[in-house]
C-alpha cells in the first residue's frame, strides 16, 4: 500500500516535469520550402552554388542595363557613382570600403561576389535576374578586375576555383586580436 503511493507520487512528478519540458518547446519542423525561401548563402568552396552558367560578354551587357546607372564602367569616373561603389580599377587595398577597395584589390573570395550581387543587386530590384545572369555579372566583374580571362566561363565548378589577388590579406581576430595589433596603454 505504502509502496503503491510512492509509485503514484513518482509517476505524477515525472509526468508533470515532462509536461513542463514539452510545454516550453514551440518550434515546428521546418520544411525544405521554408529553408529555400530564407537561406541564400554560398560558401567559398562552392557549397550551395546553383546550377547555371555565365560569361563575360553577357555580363558586360547586363551591367550596362542593370548596374551602370549607379556604378561606373571601368573607363568612367563619375565621382557620385564612385562613392556609391567603385567596382574596378583600384590597385591599392588601403582606404575606404566602396571607394578605395575593390573586388580586385581587396575581396578574398570569388564566391562572395556571386553571393552578394545575387542577394543585394541591382539595388532597385535584387534577385530580379536568373542564376545564369548573376554568373555572367560575376564573370564580368572578375574579368574587369584583372582576375579571369575574357573567355572564361563561370559556373558552380569554375567560380570557387578562381584565386583572388588578396586571398592572403586577412588575419583572424576572433576570439583575440593578435598581440601586435593591440593598442598598448
Amino acid at each position: 500500500m505504502y509502496m503503491h503511493k510512492i509509485i503514484i507520487f513518482v509517476t505524477l512528478l515525472v509526468s508533470t516535469q515532462l509536461a513542463i519540458a514539452q510545454e516550453s518547446r514551440f518550434g515546428v519542423p521546418a520544411t525544405q520550402a521554408d529553408i529555400d525561401k530564407s537561406f541564400w548563402s554560398v560558401f567559398p568552396d562552392g557549397e550551395f552554388l546553383p546550377d547555371g552558367e555565365g560569361n563575360v560578354a553577357e555580363g558586360r551587357e547586363l551591367f550596362e542595363y542593370n548596374c551602370n546607372i549607379c556604378h561606373n564602367f571601368p573607363d568612367e569616373n563619375d565621382p557620385v557613382k564612385n562613392e556609391i561603389g567603385k567596382l574596378f580599377g583600384v590597385e591599392d587595398k588601403r582606404g575606404k570600403a566602396n571607394l578605395d577597395q575593390t573586388i580586385g584589390s581587396y575581396w578574398p573570395y570569388s564566391t562572395t561576389v556571386f553571393n552578394y550581387i545575387r542577394r543585394a543587386m541591382p539595388l532597385v530590384a535584387p534577385m530580379s535576374l536568373t542564376n545564369s545572369e548573376y554568373y555572367s555579372l560575376t564573370a564580368y566583374l572578375l574579368h574587369e578586375n584583372g582576375i579571369i580571362a575574357e573567355d572564361d566561363v563561370m559556373n558552380k565548378d569554375t567560380l570557387p576555383k578562381v584565386e583572388m589577388p588578396n586571398k592572403d590579406g586577412f588575419v583572424n581576430a576572433y576570439p583575440e586580436v593578435p598581440e601586435k595589433y593591440l593598442a598598448k596603454p
Binding site: 570600403a97 577597395q101 573586388i103 552578394y116
Partner: peptide, 15 residues
C-alpha cells in the same frame, strides 16, 4: 570580408 574588416599598418586586414 569587403566591409567591417580593419586594414592594419602592415597591409593585413583584421577579420
Amino acid at each position: 570580408t569587403a566591409k567591417y574588416t580593419d586594414m592594419m599598418p602592415d597591409d593585413k586586414a583584421l577579420q
